[in-house]
């Protein structure tokens, strides 16, 4: 039987079991790196550096994880904080770059052209709307969870998603 995230966290807490933490990293690396790639506008090297920092911070502060939210939600919050701190340092919170998309991992279910259009449209959104859309629409977080990750009011999350969706639809329809 496969261990749950809670089982693995319990092992890390009880015995400082780094193998258990490694399993947690393996499980969540794709979603955390994916989120950071969206936030950094597909700067893969930067996103992976931030993802590495995210998991390092998670390991160091895992005793503060109280189990009130999903482990992935807690990781997203750390990842978002890492991104914000880095962006503040770089002063790149504003500005729009052309998306440079990686095609080698394209899932078969989506037309590559449509995927390119979607990712391009997503990267044109302002950071606050893009982040909310990626967390909720792409990663399946509830509005409440996204509000906790981003540390903003629930109403702001809903507004950002509404605006983000409308802009995406308009871009895709154009």
């Amino acid at each position: 039987m496969e261990l749950t995230d809670a089982d693995l966290i319990a092992r890390v807490l009880a015995n400082d079991d780094q193998h258990a933490f490694g399993e947690l990293v393996r499980r969540h690396q794709s979603s955390v790196r994916g989120l950071l790639r969206q936030l950094t506008r597909t700067d893969i090297a930067l996103a992976d550096d931030l993802a590495q920092e995210t998991f390092l911070r998670a390991y160091k502060s895992i005793r503060s994880f109280r189990g009130e939210a999903r482990f992935s939600t807690w990781l997203y919050r750390i990842a978002y904080n890492c991104f914000r701190e880095d962006a503040r340092k770089r002063k790149e919170l504003v500005g729009v770059d052309e998306a440079q998309l990686q095609a080698e991992h394209d899932p078969q279910t989506v037309d590559p052209g449509l995927r390119h259009d979607l990712m391009h449209a997503l990267n044109l959104l302002p950071l606050n709307e893009r982040t909310a859309v990626v967390l909720c629409c792409q990663n399946g977080l509830s509005h409440d969870e996204a509000a906790r990750v981003l540390d903003i009011p629930l109403g702001t999350v809903k507004t950002n998603i509404l605006r983000g969706r409308e802009k995406l639809k308009r871009t895709l329809a154009a």
Partner: peptide
């Protein structure tokens, strides 16, 4: 739109990422 966004998010292969993270962890 949400479905297309979910399907467009690729699974990112580990490709040594976990090993790099584990190498940076402080010794237990």
């Amino acid at each position: 739109l949400d479905r297309q966004l979910r399907e467009a998010a690729p699974y990112i292969d580990d490709e040594g990422f976990t090993a790099r993270v584990m190498a940076t962890l402080p010794a237990a």
